[in-house]
């Protein structure tokens, strides 16, 4: 189904017991694009991806995936999606080929179609040499690649990737990024979660930042970077303890604004230094801003 948005989320809330995990999430993912949900651990990324992939039912709100409701039309949604979860979901006791063939059969392919497809995918994911080795012997990067290959056994139009590169070394991460970009070029809609700004930047057409169950910012990588890309000014006291940190946009104008704003609030003995923003600053900046907007 070719709707403008592959995923439409409106007003999603979810709690587990007393813990509120998602508070009124709204977002639209354009068909054929790569969408990254960026946020720290515990922000609600996995819960949201689990709702989108029918594993978890939201308390309220509605989600359309490929035009179908994830609660009332779950079976149709499952036929349009494929999930690569956070923990690698391969069968340790089986070989790479057997894993792929099993998922092929479960996805409705015949035995011979599954065989052909397995060979195709192993070649594409650079796993042909390990085709008949058991998963137990695979490295982390190989497992992740096979995990992703399994998700692509049949052509689903929407692919969910929950923290696809967490725990991988730089080289494996780069290899996985290349694959995701290739998949994106083939027209699949990709929804991924990540805690790395760089990953969202490299892969995504559009990024939503999630913190404490809220979407605190949404836009292209460029748009977000311009909001959070400036240096951070640190003020320290005579004992070299940080009194205050504030982000700037990197311009002279911005620096003046900061100085005006804090003029006189701190002692003149305070030491000033400047550093590049970290991911923590990004989240801190965005979550603080959100609270200001909502208050």
């Amino acid at each position: 189904m070719a709707t403008a948005f592959a995923i439409e989320v409106s007003g999603i809330r979810k709690s587990f017991g007393k813990q509120v995990v998602l508070k009124n999430i709204n977002l639209n993912v354009p068909t054929g694009k790569v969408f990254a949900l960026l946020g720290p651990n515990g922000a609600g990324k996995t819960t949201l991806i689990n709702i989108l992939s029918t594993l978890v039912i939201p308390d309220s709100g509605s989600v359309l995936v490929a035009g179908y409701d994830v609660v009332t039309n779950k079976e149709r949604v499952k036929q349009s999606i494929s999930l690569t979860g956070q923990s690698v979901a391969v069968d340790e006791m089986l070989t790479a080929t057997e894993n792929l063939q099993m998922m092929g059969r479960l996805s409705g392919l015949s035995a011979s179609e599954s065989r052909i497809r397995a060979t195709e995918l192993l070649k594409y994911f650079d796993l042909a040499e390990a085709a008949h080795k058991r998963m137990k012997t695979f490295s982390g990067g190989m497992r992740r690649r096979l995990d992703l290959a399994i998700s692509l056994v049949v052509g689903r139009s929407i692919l969910f990737l929950d923290e696809p590169t967490t725990g991988l070394d730089t080289r494996s991460r780069q290899a996985l990024w290349n694959i995701v970009l290739k998949l994106a070029a083939s027209g699949i809609t990709i929804f991924l979660t990540t805690q790395y700004l760089e990953e969202a930047d490299q892969l995504a057409d559009e990024i939503a930042v999630i913190a404490n169950g809220h979407i605190v910012a949404q836009g292209s990588a460029e748009e977000l970077k311009s909001r959070i890309g400036g240096e951070v000014i640190e003020l320290r006291n005579e004992n070299d303890q940080i009194i205050r940190e504030f982000p700037t946009d990197g311009s002279m104008e911005g620096l003046k604004r900061v100085l005006d704003q804090y003029n006189g609030s701190f002692s003149d003995d305070a030491r000033v230094s400047i550093r590049r923003p970290t991911m923590d600053d990004v989240f801190l900046d965005l979550t603080t801003e959100k609270q200001e907007v909502s208050s």
Binding site: L106, V154, G155
Partner: peptide, 24 residues
């Protein structure tokens, strides 16, 4: 790396095939 080999969407596996796969 070659282009990703796309397949068409298939229909769901039958109950018999599902059981056969899990038993195997």
């Amino acid at each position: 790396m070659t282009n990703f080999p796309i397949t068409t969407e298939t229909k769901a596996a039958t109950l018999g095939a599902t059981n056969a796969v899990f038993i195997g």
